[in-house]
């Protein structure tokens, strides 16, 4: 039981901070995902708005 606890403690200590590199896998990183999707939708809205502003008036 005690060795298991020690292992768990070690695992918790080794837990890298969000988005950290080097442990072979990426932990967390939701802020990057959010930023990516916000940027995507912002781009769509802004480009659509620019098309709307330039729309042919005839």
């Amino acid at each position: 039981m005690i060795p298991l606890l020690v292992l768990a403690q070690a695992a918790a200590d080794a837990q890298p901070s969000p988005g950290q590199v080097g442990s072979g896998r990426v932990i967390g990183g939701w802020e990057f995902v959010t930023a990516a999707y916000v940027l995507t939708f912002l781009g769509i809205v802004l480009y659509a708005a620019s098309l709307w502003v330039r729309r042919p008036r005839s």
Binding site: R25, G28, W30, F32, V33
Partner: peptide
């Protein structure tokens, strides 16, 4: 991509960016 896909083994959560990038 955001809510139903489980995190990947190596990439973790950031793999979700794939569906937009």
């Amino acid at each position: 991509a955001l809510f139903s896909v489980p995190p990947e083994r190596d990439m973790g959560e950031v793999v979700r960016i794939f569906a937009a990038h």
